[in-house]
């Protein structure tokens, strides 16, 4: 296990506030501030449990970074936090960091644009953790809602990689029949052989975050708040594709969710077989539609539409900042393959 990093030094933001990395014992203050901030913005907000926090930040096999702004009483005034991902690329191994749960515990009525604790925590995060060295975060990214985008683009150098739309399909119009010769097995744990499948799948994908057994187990099997199902598509002994399904909410819609999609870009038969499983799974869980979040540059984008999916808007902008000379916004736009499972939204 790679623990949450806490090696950066503390610095004083003002007479009352200091910036420093998370350290053991801060959890309760982080959760108090988190609840205070997000309950204002979401009337349906349910306070995050310590168990959930530990799963998300302490047990991520790729690690996490948290920078806090704390007042003299030890209360959290701002946080910039990111979940790390190992990414395979032609350039070699890269570290992406998904910014999540970053906030400013501001007085009621003030906006994120004036959220200096958030911005300063973000700037300190950049100084502490971002760069081109092998151990640093090479890309910091997130699916930003409008408020986070405004603040992040102005103050933290976020760039608009893509206006993120979703794909949705009426499950009844999708093919549900398994192609001949394929067998589909469901499980709550990652299927055997998934790392080798990911190695084959990643070869044609440009940039793709690692999907090894440890990450999949952490992200889906051990998630404390949701139940996911793996679907492993095999032809004989060969694993041809793996999908992860969940019934849940995304972008205000209750639906079947295509949470992960691991198969080679060129394996059309497996693509049909896996999609048929998602359709059957959605129908079995009572969902009328299946949603997927994929880059519009992926080959699935058009093919899914030809099979009955429609494109619809979401509130999100895929925002990122690159810190590696071989990466820029256009490269991310063209070559980065991701799914809902890469995000913390489902």
């Amino acid at each position: 296990m790679i623990p949450v990093s806490s090696h950066a030094a503390a610095r004083r933001l003002s007479a009352e506030t200091i910036l420093r990395p998370w350290k053991r014992g801060d959890e309760a203050a982080i959760l108090r501030a988190h609840a205070r901030v997000f309950s204002r913005e979401d009337p349906h907000f349910e306070a995050r449990t310590l168990q959930h926090w530990r799963w998300q930040f302490e047990r991520n096999p790729a690690g996490a970074h948290i920078l806090l702004a704390l007042d003299a009483d030890g209360e959290v005034r701002g946080q910039y936090a990111a979940l790390r991902q190992r990414v395979h690329a032609q350039q070699g191994p890269l570290n992406f960091a998904q910014s999540v749960d970053s906030f400013h515990a501001r007085p009621r009525g003030s906006g994120l644009a004036r959220a200096s604790a958030f911005v300063r925590a973000g700037l300190a995060y950049r100084e502490s953790y971002c760069g081109a060295a092998p151990e640093q975060d090479h890309v910091v990214w997130g699916l930003a809602n409008p408020a986070a985008w405004r603040s992040g683009s102005r103050r933290l150098g976020y760039e608009h990689v893509r206006t993120q739309d979703l794909l949705s399909a009426d499950v009844e119009v999708l093919p549900q029949q398994q192609p001949a010769g394929f067998e589909l097995q469901e499980s709550e744990l990652p299927p055997a052989g998934v790392a080798e499948l990911q190695a084959r799948a990643g070869a044609g994908r440009g940039l793709r975050a690692e999907r090894d057994e440890a990450w999949l187990r952490w992200r889906f099997s051990e998630h404390p708040g949701a139940r996911y199902v793996f679907g492993a598509l095999r032809e004989g002994a060969q694993l041809r594709g793996v999908g992860v399904y969940r019934h849940g909410e995304f972008a205000g819609r209750s639906a079947g969710l295509l949470c992960d999609w691991i198969l080679p870009d060129t394996d059309q038969a497996a693509r049909f077989g896996l999609l048929a499983w998602f359709a059957r799974r959605s129908r079995a869980s009572g969902a009328r539609e299946l949603l997927a979040l994929l880059p519009d540059t992926a080959s699935e984008w058009l093919q899914f539409q030809r099979m009955g999916f429609c494109v619809a808007p979401t509130p999100y902008v895929l925002a990122a900042r690159c810190f590696h000379p071989a990466l820029d916004r256009e490269f991310l736009f063209q070559r980065w393959f991701y799914t809902l499972g890469d995000t913390d939204l489902v």
């Binding site: 206006t163 739309d165 519009d296 058009l302 539409q305 030809r306 429609c310 494109v311 619809a312 808007p313």
Partner: peptide, 17 residues
């Protein structure tokens, strides 16, 4: 994408490219 014509065209076979 926010317009009602966006899904309308898709329902008539247009792909969002």
């Amino acid at each position: 994408e926010w317009s009602a014509w966006f899904p309308w065209f898709q329902a008539r076979g247009f792909l969002a490219v």
